[in-house]
């Protein structure tokens, strides 16, 4: 299998990963596994149930968010 490098932007930071990589894999590599985060990919929500089946593509822009204290 050819491993290709993919470049994605995660929370504003440009990052490179070995592909193929799905959202669940990304969360694992970022030490977010098991943590309650919500994921938006290119402006669209990726439901938790689809983390394992949503493959990242070169140039994807991801937002990973949590709940924090706020008013």
């Amino acid at each position: 299998m050819i491993v290709s490098m993919i470049r994605v932007t995660v929370n504003g930071d440009a990052q490179r990963f070995d592909g193929p990589l799905d959202v669940a894999g990304l969360l694992a590599r970022l030490d977010c596994k098991g943590k309650k985060v919500a994921v938006e990919r290119n402006g669209e929500i990726v439901p938790r149930s689809a983390h394992g089946s949503t493959l990242l593509a070169d140039g994807d822009r991801l937002e990973l968010v949590v709940a924090v204290g706020g008013g």
């Binding site: 937002e63 949590v66 709940a67 204290g69």
Partner: peptide, 20 residues
Amino acid sequence: ITVAIRRTNIGQKPGEPSLL
């Protein structure tokens, strides 16, 4: 109670409590 939605701290210490 109100909460804010913010980017997760990538590389946050594992085991650190969350608001949830």
